[in-house]
Design a protein around this nucleic acid. Structure first.
Lengths: 230, 230
DNA sequence: ACAAAAGTGTTAATCTTACACCCATGT
DNA sequence: ACATGGGTGTAAGATTAACACTTTTGT
């Protein structure tokens, strides 16, 4: 057994947020190294006694002062031996969603700067992070069509039109409002709060909330949340 | 940046094969260490200059003398810090399929022994390999219902009933033969060879083959191979 | 002629799609 | 009264699900 291995292991997180009908990605500016002043995903090396999950959460806290709502492993990037110019690094990439209310304050940041970028306006990224982001974007699109992850991007109470716009803007397509509403309501995982949105233009809109308990119950029963529409 | 990291990186492969209407998994007997004489997945440490893909393929060759038909990354196991009792190992698990004709000869094996086990008759496994196998089994079941991976488990020419049995036995359910045939044929990715199977009992059965070219063309067009049946 | 596995169509039920007008409020 | 966004139903079309008999061969 070759114990003389010289490969480092890192984690990276693609954090998606949603605000003002736009999907955003959290990036941090590199402070050191070849990629100094380039934007990059949140990430860093795993500590010896730390699980991968712990490492991601720690980096999210340290670099961006953020706690995420949803976290899943995305893919492990280790087929480009020179993805990091310093030495060989294998990176386990994670896919994260934050509630839009967490979008504003990027506190505790020990990175030079941490910012949200619209998915349509991403600067050149350090390392192979553009590739990782591309995969994450595909994942969020695919996942949205068979799992109700949209709620992890919205505030606790939201309008039906928010949900609708979220689907439209992430999937980049028009959807039929009536069919969408019917489908989502048919799952029975969101409920009317009885409240109305703060007054704005037009007819007042009902506020809805996601019913986590009901959701878990349905998952138990093996229900599949497929959303097919135009 | 903490360069003083003491974590090793390994790859493991869950190799599925199919023969005599049974799904099989390739296991090797451990030669050394705490788990000596336990069965384990094919796998080993990644070499410094080697990609993860190369590492898996090398291990498959060295430990089992096998070349696989389909290989995809499954999941990276790194949340149990003590999954290997010797030191910390993060393992990138791969999911592989081999054509059933490759099932018999396990040549070149530098493992004490390498054998196929029926999925229903798996011995206790070393490390956390039972957990990895469980995930791989879920993956093959899920994947079968939306991707035509069954062909990577069958010989080049096969009977419709082989394909039917493959779905039944992997998914553990009865299927309606007529509806199944209709669905599969509707994709247009398999074709009649014009040949018939070696004579056996009953009416002679046509031999079919998978049309890789047509398949890729359809993927290009964005067709989704969903298979829903009883 | 019979046993064994292969091959084949139709119908009802369900789900999906397409589509347009009224409602409640603020200005 | 009108502008704005919210809320709602129905009918045609497509897909899925349920179902059993005939064909071809070997024995």
């Amino acid at each position: 057994m070759e114990l003389n291995q010289n490969i480092k292991i890192a984690v990276d997180a693609i954090v998606f947020g949603y605000s003002e009908n736009k999907l955003n990605v959290l990036l941090i500016k590199q402070k050191f190294g070849v990629f100094k002043d380039h934007w990059a995903l949140v990430g860093g090396f795993v500590k010896d006694g730390e699980t991968l999950d712990e490492a991601v959460n720690r980096e999210l806290r340290e670099e961006a002062g953020i706690t995420v709502n949803y976290l899943e492993q995305l893919y492990t990037f280790g087929d480009n031996v020179h993805r990091d110019p310093r030495f060989r690094v294998v990176s386990v990439a994670y896919f994260a969603l934050v509630n839009s209310t967490a979008l504003q304050p990027i506190a505790d940041s020990d990175a030079d700067e941490a910012r949200w970028f619209s998915i349509n306006d991403i600067p050149p990224l350090a390392f192979d992070h553009d590739q990782i982001l591309k995969l994450a974007y595909q994942r969020i699109q695919a996942k949205l069509t068979y799992h109700p992850i949209g709620f992890d991007l919205l505030p606790k109470e939201f309008l039906f039109s928010d949900l609708e716009n979220l689907y439209c803007s992430i999937l980049n397509k028009e959807i039929d409002r009536r069919n969408f509403r019917k489908k989502i309501l048919s799952f029975g995982i969101i409920e009317d709060t009885g409240e109305y949105a703060p007054k704005s233009k037009g007819r007042p809109a009902k506020l809805y909330r996601f019913n986590q308990t009901k959701y878990e119950q349905l998952v138990q029963e093996g229900i599949f949340f497929e959303i097919n529409f135009a």
